[in-house]
């Protein structure tokens, strides 16, 4: 009898959900290894269920989901040809530089919007008000997209040396960047304002991930100069989103420096040795 037919419901459900996640891997990798990965995951589920029950399954899912995020980035980044990797890292550096400007301009537009119509100094801005509103709505998501591309570049450049903490930080930054963008798109299209929380949380955790990467970069001496930049950028990003708006300028400077470092030093890219 096929053992999968006698599995508990929790194991069956988990395996079905993992099967859905497998669809995110590159097609060739999925076709070659997908069934085996599913089989191994099912074996792990059975063991976790037998030894730890549902809490064991939850712990397994936490580990597996982290593994999924790491390996999916790895497989997608290796799907391309290696010669493209260096180019992508350079481009992601430029993306961070442009993103820094978009971030600063977006926040500046947001601050100017808070004008007082009775104030003689801000009154001349009245006719430009709608354009300022429009520019913030475009500039901040554009900055988010560019920071996301920059985080991908940081991952490709430093994943090998950043250790588990650094890699985790960058994975968090990438995933949360995607979540923030999805929340923003949903907020725009559904007009359901509670997606605002998803956007803010995603942005906060993106910068949180950059802080983690910064700590790992300090520990492992990854950056040739301006070593505190990722940590300072992360903290300033979080504080400027949380209400200390003037710090958006420092965040922009930090993003600019990170972008400059990336595009000027994409690393020596060669076909990787047998690394996991």
């Amino acid at each position: 009898m096929n053992p999968s037919t006698t599995d508990p419901q929790a194991v069956k459900l988990s395996a079905s959900f993992y099967n859905l996640l497998l669809a995110s891997y590159p097609t060739r990798f999925r076709q070659e290894y997908g069934p085996h990965m599913l089989q191994v995951f099912r074996d792990c589920c059975r063991k976790a269920y037998q030894t730890g029950g549902l809490s064991g399954m939850l712990w397994l899912w936490a580990l597996t989901f982290f593994d999924f995020l790491q390996s999916i980035i790895e497989e997608h980044s290796q799907r391309g040809v290696y010669m493209n990797k260096e180019k992508f890292i350079r481009l992601s550096g430029w993306a961070l530089i442009v993103g820094a400007f978009a971030w600063v301009l977006g926040f500046a537009a947001g601050n100017i919007q808070e004008y007082n119509p009775y104030n003689a100094l801000t009154r001349p801005l009245e006719r430009y008000f709608q354009y300022l509103v429009g520019s913030e709505v475009i500039l901040i998501p554009a900055a988010l997209i560019l920071i996301l591309v920059g985080s991908l570049g940081l991952y490709l450049r430093y994943a090998g040396q950043a250790g588990r903490l650094g890699r985790s930080g960058l994975v968090i930054a990438i995933v949360e960047g995607v979540i923030a963008l999805v929340a923003y798109a949903l907020m725009l299209f559904t007009k359901f304002e509670y997606f605002w929380f998803g956007l803010i949380l995603g942005m906060l955790l993106t910068f949180g991930g950059i802080i983690l990467f910064g700590v790992a970069a300090l520990r492992n001496r990854l950056l040739p100069r301006w070593k505190l930049t990722p940590v300072i950028t992360g903290f300033c990003g979080i504080l400027s989103i949380s209400g200390l708006s003037p710090l958006f300028l420092l965040t922009g400077v930090g993003l600019f420096i990170l972008g400059y470092l990336l595009q000027s030093d994409p690393g020596i890219i060669s076909p990787q040795p047998a690394t996991g």
Partner: peptide
């Protein structure tokens, strides 16, 4: 060292390609 299926088969893929 706990490996998930993604890390395991990603490593296996590269080790097969490398002839290890």
């Amino acid at each position: 060292v706990k490996m998930g299926p993604g890390t395991l088969y990603g490593s296996i893929k590269r080790m097969l390609a490398g002839g290890l």
